[in-house]
Design a protein around this nucleic acid. Structure first.
Lengths: 337, 337
DNA sequence: ACTTAGCACTTGGGCATGTTGAGTGCTAAA
DNA sequence: TTTAGCACTCAACATGCCCAAGTGCTAAGT
């Protein structure tokens, strides 16, 4: 396996297969890539590669195609990340800079990524747990109805309507609000629970009941953010690559709609040294995705939320990895700014 | 065309074809449906129907399939809406009653509808223009930063951050807020522009500049709601019906992702007497959808926002229509409640 | 010890041909 | 107006054939 030429052959096979979609034979290899040896030698190398499970032959007399393990080897040890073109970089900037809303940012991001890669792009909503409280507002809509609004540093605004067990006054609400603001302003959402209990106990006794209820609502608000949601784009690209998914793309579409599945998948992925994680074919435990690969990376302040691309195992990994990384980096910058 | 038996034959053809996916011939018709005549007679009727462009034969010696025009006739004049089963009704209630958030309601609604119909379900965000202002809040985050929040009767909360050209005070903001509330509370969003200008002019002179800016923001808020967005579910169902879309489902997926297209399509649809609108095949001007049918209806207080289903022209119209109507009606009730 | 040329062998895909069965249109009789 | 009967058409399937691509192996060459 340490044979350098065999690795070279594997690379050639992967590259050819990725862009021709057809099993590649020894003859075709020698004249497309000028390796200095004859087809017979290549055949021997191929036999060795097949022995190791890196490539396989669909039929006795067809060329070879890479196996999942072969792609894995290619991604880990052979390929070099291919930098994006200047035009592509420019596209990222101009397209994403126009966004205002967080929703809009994410929407534009996935669309962009799916266009760059010609595949399905996915992004998780950023995890708010690491975001901080920027402001809290309590609005009295009716004597017993309060709108609780929390603004977090990411620019996201969370709100919820709360119905109180008994009537309260604008004044009382202002006191509670002041207490909340004093103790939580600028604090991480993850620290919210403890800070809120302190705030509640420090509120004037007669307001404490109301404060407790509203504090509770705020805690939930910190949790209910949309971290469990994701945005999709480019599903139409799946249809284009018919034939890559033998049994049709049905199962893949199903998996994509099952947010729970996708969220788990993305969250589980662990990044390698290059800051990107790749799941190839059967490495995705979920049944519908055994013919698919996922390339993902973290983004945002703590890189906890994931953004990625899903496509056929036969995908152009170097380019895809580059695109995912570039978009993730720019997205992080936007969210921070 | 006034021949009643010919209509009966057309109905039989549509029904058989919908559930067998295969061209239906005269012989098959006579024994599956007990029309009191022989196959030869049916053949004559079929010839007449073909003459009128209601059915067509894929090949010389194959059975007939309905044309778009045939489906149209079927939907308009022949079919009776098929009521939902008790279980289905129950499913609607139990599934939708669990929702809290508007986002959640819509999400659950489309999922449900796509499951009921085994097709792609689409829902537009409700049009706020007919909703009314419930509350307006202005929050001073920094001397020059104001968070503008508007709560509408649908329960939706819209907000936006505004940066002022010069600093303002909490007091000034309270005045403006009071003026806004006084003149717009309970008013329809569509009347917001005129009401706001009145409010601005009635504000204390020194606050007028700020009021103008914030009023402007509110106006936009009334517009930017997510009315131009929609929620999708069930795209995986498209894959199941391979063969219904001859050139593969690619173009359909593309159309679905192009929200602009879908929004236009839904908005254009005009409801018939039964309160449902159906677009069949080529009636959808958009290129990618000439093999698809859309069944949609309005929902919400003014029935302006649309909810619907998209599937192959060869779909079970009676059932689909029933499902769309039932879900829309229940959705309206939830939003009103 | 590798590499290479040559050769026998396998096999899916393309093509031409034959067969079958469902379905039609038409005509003539009821 | 309906029906039976019949000749005709044509997609789908099956069969048989050949070809090209590709392999594995062996023996010779470096």
């Amino acid at each position: 396996m340490s044979e350098p030429r065999q690795l070279e052959v594997l690379r050639a096979i992967v590259e050819d297969y990725v862009h021709s979609r057809e099993p590649v034979g020894s003859k075709a290899l020698v004249d497309r890539h000028h390796l200095g040896v004859s087809s017979a030698t290549i055949r021997n190398d191929m036999a060795a590669l097949e022995e190791e499970g890196l490539i396989a032959a669909p039929h006795t007399s067809a060329g070879r195609i890479p196996t999942d393990k072969g792609y894995r080897m290619f991604v880990d040890r052979i390929s070099a990340v291919k930098p994006l073109s200047a035009a592509e970089r420019r596209a990222i900037h101009t397209f994403l800079d126009q966004a205002d809303d967080l929703d809009d940012v994410l929407d534009r991001t996935v669309r962009l990524l799916s266009q760059l890669t010609n595949q399905v792009a996915v992004v998780q909503y950023p995890q708010l747990t690491s975001a901080a409280v920027r402001h809290i507002e309590l609005v009295l809509l009716a004597p017993r109805q309060v709108l609780v609004v929390m603004i977090v540093t990411t620019g996201k605004v969370e709100q919820r309507m709360v119905t109180l067990p008994e009537e309260t006054t604008e004044d009382a609400l202002q006191h509670v609000r002041a207490a909340f603001l004093a103790s939580t302003s600028g604090a991480l959402l993850s620290r919210l629970p403890e800070l809120l209990t302190t705030a509640v106990t420090s509120a004037p006794p007669q307001d404490r009941a109301v404060a407790a209820i509203l504090g509770n609502a705020l805690e939930q608000l910190a949790g209910i953010g949309r971290e469990d949601r994701m945005v999709l784009a480019g599903t139409a690209n799946l249809a284009r690559s018919t034939g890559d998914f033998p049994l049709s793309i049905g199962p893949v579409l199903e998996a994509l709609e099952e947010q729970v599945v996708m969220m788990r998948l993305l969250t589980e992925m662990e990044q390698d040294a290059r800051g990107v994680s790749v799941r190839i074919g059967h490495e995705n435990r979920y049944g519908g995705l055994t013919e698919a690969s996922v390339v993902a990376t973290g983004y945002g302040p703590d890189e906890l939320a994931k953004i990625g691309v899903l496509g056929p195992t036969r995908m152009d990994y170097p380019t895809t990895i580059a695109a995912v990384r570039a978009v993730a980096r720019y997205l992080s910058r936007i969210l921070a700014g």
